Simulated scan of single mutants.
Amino acid sequence: MKVSRIHTAIGSDIGNKRRNNQDNGLAALGVYVVCDGMGGGVGGERASGLAVKHLAALASKPARDRADIEATLQAAQDDTLELGDELGGVAGTTATGLVSPRIPSDDAEADGRLDPALWYVINVGDSRTYHLDRRPDGISVADSICQVTTDHSQRQEAIDSGLMLPEVANATIPRNIITQCVGSPDGIDPDFFAVDPVGRFVVCSDGLHSLVEEHEIGEICEANPDPQDTVTALITAALDAGGDDNVTVIVVDIDADEAQAGQSAETANPAMGSPKEPWHASKLDRGEDLGTISDITLDGLRT
C-alpha cells in the first residue's frame, strides 16, 4: 500500500458532572492522541495540556521513530513531574492514539494523501484506541471492533494475572485506579503497537468507554460513516449514559487507494462486505521498532 486518504474528526465535552475539562487531544499531521488529565482542579487540565504540547512538537517532525516518540513522552513526563511538585501533589495524564512514522506531504492537508506503511499505536494509562474494518463503500463493520490497547489499571492487571474473572474485577475494583500515567513518580513504560493503518480508528478517554459498551461503539461507528458525525454520536451516547466524566473522542478513517480498494472488493466476503484477511496489530517488544520487527512479533499478531 502506497497511497491512502485520511479523514479525521475530534470532539470533547466537559460532561454532566465535572466543573472543568481535564481532557486534551491532538489530531494533526499524522498524530492522533487523546490525553486524559488527573490531579484535581486545574492540575489535570495542565498535565494533559503539557503532553499535547510535546506531541504537537512531535507532529512537526518530518519523520518520527519509536525513539522520537519515547523522547516526547519522557519530556512530557519530566514537565508533569515538575507540575506535580509545583502543585504539591501528583499531576498526571494518560496518552493514547495513532502516530504515523512520517509527516504527511504538503498536499496531504488538501487531499488527505500519504503513504501509511505501518503506523504506531501508543498507550500510557487507561484511555483507549480501537480499530474497525471498513467496507469498500466506507461503512465501518460494527462486529469487527478491536481494542488495540490494554489498560494500565489495577482492574486489568487482576484480569490478566488470572486472579479475577472480568465480571468480578469490574464489580470490585474501581475503574479509575490506574498503574501508569505520564507524571507518575514511578516513571512510565509506554506500550507500542505496530498496526496496519487502513480502517477506522477510535481514540477516546475513559469518559466514553466506561459508559458505552464496546459493541455499542461499534454500532455507532457503523451507523455513522462520516467521522464528525461519529464523534458527535459517541459523545452524545456517553452523555446520555450519565456523562459522569469528561469525554474526548478522535475518529481517524484511512482508506487504501482506488486500485487496492478494488482488490479488497474482489476478495470481500459477500455476506459481510469486508475483506477476508483479518486486521492485525502487534505489540512491539522493548527496543523493537517498525523497521526491525522480529519474526516472533510478526508470528504473534493478534486480531
Rank of each mutant, 00 (worst) to 15 (best):
G242L: 05
T248L: 03
D257T: 00
T248K: 07
C204G: 03
L211G: 05
D196C: 10
A223D: 11
V212P: 10
V182Q: 08
V195H: 06
D226Y: 00
D191G: 01
D160F: 00
T172C: 09
V198S: 05
D160I: 06
T236N: 13
L163R: 15
C181Y: 14
A194H: 03
V198T: 12
Q180F: 04
L211T: 02
Q156S: 08
H209N: 11
G187P: 07
C204H: 00
Q180W: 10
L165N: 09
H209G: 06
V249G: 01
G199K: 11
S282K: 08
N269V: 01
D240G: 08
F193T: 01
I220A: 08
I178N: 08
P278Y: 09
V231S: 09
I235L: 06
I177K: 13
F201G: 02
L163G: 12
G243W: 12
T248E: 05
P174D: 08
L211D: 04
S264C: 04
D196A: 08
T230N: 14
S205A: 04
D244A: 11
I235T: 03
S161D: 03
H215E: 13
I220T: 12
T179W: 13
A271L: 15
M164E: 06
I235C: 07
P185Q: 10
V168S: 05
V251I: 12
V195E: 05
N170M: 07
G199N: 04
T230I: 01
G262Y: 14
I173D: 07
D240Y: 02
I254N: 12
E277A: 11
